[in-house]
Design a protein around this nucleic acid. Sequence first.
DNA 1: ACATTTTAATTTGCATGCAAAGTATTTGCA
DNA 2: TGCAAATACTTTGCATGCAAATTAAAATGT
Lengths: 154, 154
Amino acid sequence: MSYAQLQLKNQLCHRLYMASNSIARTYRPLLADINLTYPQYVVMMALWEEDKITIAALIEKTAIDGSALTQILKKMTDKALLMVIKDESDKRKRLIQLTKQGQSLKQQASDIPNKIQCKFNSIDSTQAEQLMHLLDLVVHDLNNEELNMLDIEE
Amino acid sequence: MSYAQLQLKNQLCHRLYMASNSIARTYRPLLADINLTYPQYVVMMALWEEDKITIAALIEKTAIDGSALTQILKKMTDKALLMVIKDESDKRKRLIQLTKQGQSLKQQASDIPNKIQCKFNSIDSTQAEQLMHLLDLVVHDLNNEELNMLDIEE
DNA sequence: ACATTTTAATTTGCATGCAAAGTATTTGCA
DNA sequence: TGCAAATACTTTGCATGCAAATTAAAATGT
């Protein structure tokens, strides 16, 4: 009975770990068809929604780590999906802009959400929304915790 | 209105991506205190539950990728947390056994679940269970999908 | 104006996660 | 018996995720 909390089967975190990996594994072959990794796909989605934004805005929108993003953008530039442009009004900033090819990839990617959705057989849309809501709470709590700690230190 | 499914804010997968990363980031400093990474901690939890199991069993229990696990076990061996022993009855297999230090680390880790739980302020235990259940469904669906494909190919 | 601080990105080093290929062993079967 | 097929791992190569240190440029304070 002791240490019950240390049991893997009771841990929310381990569930998240497994689910996140499962999803990434599921996306990989689909994204390979259009020569993207999952984080790169996330970057593309962000840019398809709003093009020519700063790296900071991209970090905010995608939740991809900044230092990782630098490398990712480098590879995507090599693939001619986007360009990293200096912002002349503030030379610290960089603007990310899709190329024609980057823009046209949107059509080829348009069926991916459906293909993914088809794999969820035991979850209806209500449960999916519930799940998204709960995950938002998790993220909010964990990110807020960091803010709280900053408050305390001040 | 078009391409609504391609919007990040509507994607369950992106939520999972963010939540999983948030959790890992939250664990990191706590686990650093006992010199473990999150996957290493998962391995320890599995072994605290049941010691001297095969690598295959460890993969089954932890859901850590086999090739990654090989490397992880190597590092944990270097830290004298465990030993990788050849199974004499079947020389393909390896048995993983905790060292004294590995066993005693359990006490030092016993407060980590509570410390993590404390960070979840907006989620009660009912919601946590709900969340775990939904994540189980996700994992089940995505892993089953692979099985289904195997069925088809046969 | 000018030094200090803050911002925005990049670089570096380490630890996975994963697909694909490779290496022993053991099983299964003709 | 002997060899192909299945097992159980390991190795390799590539792409992150992240903390910490660095670099460059803009904002602030005096």
